[in-house]
Simulated assay, not measured.
Amino acid sequence: MTKELNRIAKSIDHTRLTTGASNQEDPLNEVTDLIAYNRYFGWYGNDCSEMGKWIDREHNKFPDRCMGISEYGAGGDVFQQADSLIHPEPWGQWHPENWQTFYHIENWKQLSARKFLWCKFIWCMFDFSAAGRREGTTFGRNDKGLVTYDRKIKKDAFYFYKANWNKDANVLHIAGKRNNRLSTQINDITVFSNCGKTELFVNGVSMGKKNPDNTCIAEWKNIKLNPGKNYIEIHGGNKKDSCILYLE
Protein backbone atom coordinates (compact mmCIF):
# COMPACT_ATOMS: atom_id res chain seq x y z
CA MET A 1 0.00 0.00 0.00
CA THR A 2 2.85 2.39 0.83
CA LYS A 3 4.45 1.75 -2.53
CA GLU A 4 1.15 2.33 -4.32
CA LEU A 5 0.49 5.57 -2.44
CA ASN A 6 4.00 6.77 -3.26
CA ARG A 7 3.48 5.95 -6.95
CA ILE A 8 0.18 7.85 -7.03
CA ALA A 9 1.69 10.90 -5.31
CA LYS A 10 4.54 10.99 -7.83
CA SER A 11 2.16 10.63 -10.76
CA ILE A 12 0.13 13.62 -9.52
CA ASP A 13 3.18 15.86 -8.96
CA HIS A 14 6.66 14.45 -9.46
CA THR A 15 8.27 17.70 -8.20
CA ARG A 16 7.13 17.17 -4.61
CA LEU A 17 8.86 15.01 -2.03
CA THR A 18 6.98 12.19 -0.35
CA THR A 19 7.48 11.33 3.31
CA GLY A 20 6.42 8.69 5.77
CA ALA A 21 6.42 8.21 9.54
CA SER A 22 7.49 4.88 10.99
CA ASN A 23 8.21 3.15 14.28
CA GLN A 24 9.58 0.04 12.57
CA GLU A 25 12.95 -0.93 11.12
CA ASP A 26 11.45 -2.12 7.88
CA PRO A 27 12.16 -2.10 4.10
CA LEU A 28 9.14 0.20 3.70
CA ASN A 29 11.28 2.97 5.19
CA GLU A 30 13.03 3.11 1.80
CA VAL A 31 9.86 3.77 -0.23
CA THR A 32 9.35 7.51 0.30
CA ASP A 33 11.85 10.28 -0.42
CA LEU A 34 11.99 11.18 3.28
CA ILE A 35 11.35 9.09 6.35
CA ALA A 36 10.86 10.08 9.99
CA TYR A 37 10.64 7.89 13.07
CA ASN A 38 8.45 7.86 16.17
CA ARG A 39 10.94 6.96 18.91
CA TYR A 40 10.41 7.24 22.67
CA PHE A 41 13.70 6.14 24.21
CA GLY A 42 13.52 6.93 27.90
CA TRP A 43 9.73 6.74 28.11
CA TYR A 44 8.52 3.45 26.67
CA GLY A 45 11.42 1.49 28.09
CA ASN A 46 15.11 1.93 27.33
CA ASP A 47 17.17 4.87 28.45
CA CYS A 48 17.23 8.46 27.18
CA SER A 49 20.81 7.98 25.98
CA GLU A 50 19.61 5.36 23.48
CA MET A 51 18.16 8.00 21.14
CA GLY A 52 21.50 9.23 19.81
CA LYS A 53 22.98 5.73 19.66
CA TRP A 54 20.02 4.43 17.65
CA ILE A 55 20.08 7.38 15.25
CA ASP A 56 23.80 6.89 14.61
CA ARG A 57 23.35 3.17 13.94
CA GLU A 58 20.56 3.85 11.44
CA HIS A 59 22.50 6.66 9.79
CA ASN A 60 25.59 4.48 9.44
CA LYS A 61 23.54 1.63 7.92
CA PHE A 62 21.64 3.94 5.56
CA PRO A 63 23.81 7.04 5.02
CA ASP A 64 21.78 8.21 2.00
CA ARG A 65 18.43 7.96 3.73
CA CYS A 66 16.87 11.33 4.60
CA MET A 67 15.84 10.56 8.17
CA GLY A 68 14.23 12.60 10.91
CA ILE A 69 12.39 12.16 14.20
CA SER A 70 8.63 12.67 13.82
CA GLU A 71 7.69 11.92 17.44
CA TYR A 72 9.49 11.94 20.77
CA GLY A 73 8.10 12.80 24.19
CA ALA A 74 7.16 11.72 27.70
CA GLY A 75 4.19 12.08 29.99
CA GLY A 76 4.25 14.80 32.62
CA ASP A 77 1.67 15.89 35.19
CA VAL A 78 2.09 19.29 36.85
CA PHE A 79 0.19 17.97 39.90
CA GLN A 80 2.66 15.11 40.39
CA GLN A 81 6.05 16.15 41.75
CA ALA A 82 9.06 14.16 42.98
CA ASP A 83 12.34 14.83 44.77
CA SER A 84 14.12 11.92 43.09
CA LEU A 85 14.54 11.17 39.40
CA ILE A 86 13.07 7.72 38.73
CA HIS A 87 11.87 6.42 35.36
CA PRO A 88 8.09 6.07 35.81
CA GLU A 89 5.91 3.33 34.36
CA PRO A 90 4.38 4.94 31.23
CA TRP A 91 1.15 2.94 31.56
CA GLY A 92 0.86 3.71 35.28
CA GLN A 93 -0.77 6.57 37.18
CA TRP A 94 2.48 8.23 38.31
CA HIS A 95 3.86 10.67 35.68
CA PRO A 96 5.95 13.19 37.68
CA GLU A 97 6.81 16.39 35.85
CA ASN A 98 10.53 16.20 36.64
CA TRP A 99 10.99 13.06 34.54
CA GLN A 100 9.38 14.72 31.52
CA THR A 101 11.76 17.67 31.94
CA PHE A 102 14.79 15.39 32.24
CA TYR A 103 13.63 13.36 29.22
CA HIS A 104 13.36 16.40 26.95
CA ILE A 105 16.68 17.87 28.05
CA GLU A 106 18.55 14.62 27.42
CA ASN A 107 16.83 13.90 24.11
CA TRP A 108 17.23 17.43 22.77
CA LYS A 109 20.95 17.41 23.52
CA GLN A 110 21.29 14.38 21.26
CA LEU A 111 18.90 15.53 18.55
CA SER A 112 20.33 19.03 18.26
CA ALA A 113 23.84 17.60 17.84
CA ARG A 114 22.81 15.61 14.76
CA LYS A 115 22.44 18.18 12.01
CA PHE A 116 21.66 15.57 9.32
CA LEU A 117 18.17 15.00 10.78
CA TRP A 118 15.67 16.82 8.57
CA CYS A 119 13.06 17.12 11.36
CA LYS A 120 12.79 16.86 15.14
CA PHE A 121 9.12 16.98 16.16
CA ILE A 122 8.01 16.93 19.80
CA TRP A 123 4.94 14.88 20.70
CA CYS A 124 3.27 17.16 21.57
CA MET A 125 2.32 20.76 22.37
CA PHE A 126 -0.81 20.19 24.50
CA ASP A 127 -2.23 17.32 26.58
CA PHE A 128 -5.13 15.86 24.58
CA SER A 129 -8.03 13.44 24.75
CA ALA A 130 -7.25 9.79 23.98
CA ALA A 131 -10.17 7.52 24.85
CA GLY A 132 -8.14 4.33 25.27
CA ARG A 133 -5.60 5.76 27.72
CA ARG A 134 -5.68 4.53 31.33
CA GLU A 135 -2.63 6.32 32.71
CA GLY A 136 -1.57 9.46 34.55
CA THR A 137 -3.96 11.48 36.69
CA THR A 138 -6.83 11.56 34.20
CA PHE A 139 -7.99 8.47 32.29
CA GLY A 140 -8.79 9.12 28.64
CA ARG A 141 -6.01 11.65 28.29
CA ASN A 142 -2.49 11.70 26.87
CA ASP A 143 -0.30 13.91 29.09
CA LYS A 144 2.77 14.20 26.86
CA GLY A 145 1.97 17.85 26.11
CA LEU A 146 4.27 20.73 26.99
CA VAL A 147 1.12 22.59 28.11
CA THR A 148 -1.83 21.26 30.13
CA TYR A 149 -5.10 20.14 28.54
CA ASP A 150 -6.86 23.42 29.40
CA ARG A 151 -3.98 25.44 27.83
CA LYS A 152 -3.42 27.24 31.14
CA ILE A 153 -0.22 25.81 32.63
CA LYS A 154 3.08 25.64 30.75
CA LYS A 155 5.18 22.73 31.99
CA ASP A 156 8.90 23.09 32.74
CA ALA A 157 9.82 21.43 29.45
CA PHE A 158 7.94 24.19 27.60
CA TYR A 159 10.32 26.80 29.03
CA PHE A 160 13.35 24.64 28.22
CA TYR A 161 12.42 24.72 24.54
CA LYS A 162 11.37 28.37 24.59
CA ALA A 163 14.79 29.33 25.98
CA ASN A 164 16.50 27.31 23.25
CA TRP A 165 14.26 28.13 20.29
CA ASN A 166 12.83 31.62 20.79
CA LYS A 167 15.80 33.97 20.65
CA ASP A 168 13.50 36.98 20.25
CA ALA A 169 12.13 36.55 23.78
CA ASN A 170 14.18 36.54 26.95
CA VAL A 171 13.42 33.43 29.00
CA LEU A 172 14.33 32.94 32.65
CA HIS A 173 12.64 30.06 34.45
CA ILE A 174 13.34 28.08 37.62
CA ALA A 175 12.73 24.40 36.86
CA GLY A 176 10.92 22.31 39.44
CA LYS A 177 9.33 25.24 41.27
CA ARG A 178 6.09 23.27 41.63
CA ASN A 179 8.01 20.68 43.62
CA ASN A 180 8.05 23.05 46.58
CA ARG A 181 7.91 20.52 49.44
CA LEU A 182 11.42 19.15 49.81
CA SER A 183 12.64 16.43 52.12
CA THR A 184 16.41 16.99 51.88
CA GLN A 185 18.41 20.02 52.96
CA ILE A 186 20.92 19.87 50.07
CA ASN A 187 19.38 20.44 46.63
CA ASP A 188 20.34 21.41 43.10
CA ILE A 189 18.71 24.48 41.51
CA THR A 190 18.23 24.32 37.72
CA VAL A 191 17.35 27.33 35.60
CA PHE A 192 16.47 27.70 31.92
CA SER A 193 17.90 30.97 30.66
CA ASN A 194 18.80 32.66 27.38
CA CYS A 195 19.56 35.92 29.21
CA GLY A 196 23.30 35.46 29.57
CA LYS A 197 24.97 35.36 32.97
CA THR A 198 22.41 34.43 35.61
CA GLU A 199 22.61 34.95 39.38
CA LEU A 200 20.91 32.85 42.06
CA PHE A 201 19.80 34.23 45.43
CA VAL A 202 18.68 31.99 48.28
CA ASN A 203 17.01 33.83 51.14
CA GLY A 204 18.57 37.06 49.88
CA VAL A 205 22.13 35.70 49.71
CA SER A 206 23.87 35.38 46.35
CA MET A 207 24.95 31.86 45.40
CA GLY A 208 27.01 33.21 42.52
CA LYS A 209 26.57 33.74 38.79
CA LYS A 210 26.47 31.09 36.08
CA ASN A 211 26.66 31.24 32.32
CA PRO A 212 24.01 28.94 30.79
CA ASP A 213 25.40 26.10 28.66
CA ASN A 214 24.66 25.63 24.97
CA THR A 215 21.23 24.22 25.83
CA CYS A 216 20.36 27.26 27.99
CA ILE A 217 20.75 25.46 31.32
CA ALA A 218 22.38 27.00 34.39
CA GLU A 219 22.69 24.77 37.44
CA TRP A 220 23.78 25.40 41.00
CA LYS A 221 24.80 22.21 42.78
CA ASN A 222 24.45 21.33 46.47
CA ILE A 223 22.52 24.40 47.60
CA LYS A 224 21.77 24.24 51.33
CA LEU A 225 18.25 25.25 52.37
CA ASN A 226 17.00 26.24 55.80
CA PRO A 227 14.27 24.27 57.58
CA GLY A 228 10.88 25.72 56.72
CA LYS A 229 10.36 28.46 54.13
CA ASN A 230 13.09 29.39 51.61
CA TYR A 231 12.86 32.22 49.08
CA ILE A 232 14.57 31.48 45.76
CA GLU A 233 15.21 34.23 43.20
CA ILE A 234 17.20 34.40 39.98
CA HIS A 235 18.29 37.42 37.97
CA GLY A 236 19.39 37.40 34.34
CA GLY A 237 19.72 40.57 32.30
CA ASN A 238 16.56 42.56 33.00
CA LYS A 239 14.53 39.44 33.87
CA LYS A 240 13.92 37.71 37.16
CA ASP A 241 11.99 34.71 38.45
CA SER A 242 11.28 33.49 41.95
CA CYS A 243 9.63 30.75 43.98
CA ILE A 244 9.27 29.59 47.57
CA LEU A 245 10.54 26.15 48.60
CA TYR A 246 9.66 24.48 51.89
CA LEU A 247 12.10 22.16 53.60
CA GLU A 248 10.07 19.79 55.74
Rank of each mutant, 00 (worst) to 15 (best):
D168N: 15
K210A: 13
N180Y: 15
I244N: 11
L111T: 07
I174C: 05
I244L: 13
R178K: 11
F62Q: 10
F116W: 12
N238C: 11
W123A: 05
Y103P: 00
K155N: 11
I234W: 07
Q93P: 06
C66L: 15
F62W: 03
I232S: 08
V78W: 13
I12C: 07
T101S: 13
P90W: 14
G68Y: 11
K209H: 01
T190D: 06
E89P: 00
C66D: 11
Q24A: 06
Y149T: 01
N164L: 11
G228H: 03
E25I: 06
G132T: 04
F160M: 10
D56A: 06
N180F: 14
W118S: 07
R57V: 14
D188F: 07
P63R: 10
I217T: 13
D56M: 04
C48I: 11
I55R: 04
D77H: 11
G176E: 06
G208R: 05
T15C: 03
Q81L: 13
Y231Q: 06
Q185I: 12
F41W: 13
E135G: 02
D64W: 11
F79R: 14
N164H: 00
T137Q: 09
D127S: 03
A130G: 07
L146D: 01
T101C: 05
I8H: 03
K155F: 07
W94A: 06
R7G: 00
N180H: 13
G76S: 07
K61Y: 00
R39P: 00
I153D: 03
W94V: 13
N211A: 08
T137C: 02
A9K: 02
W220N: 06
N170T: 12
K197Q: 08
P212D: 13
K209Y: 03
A157S: 15
C66M: 15
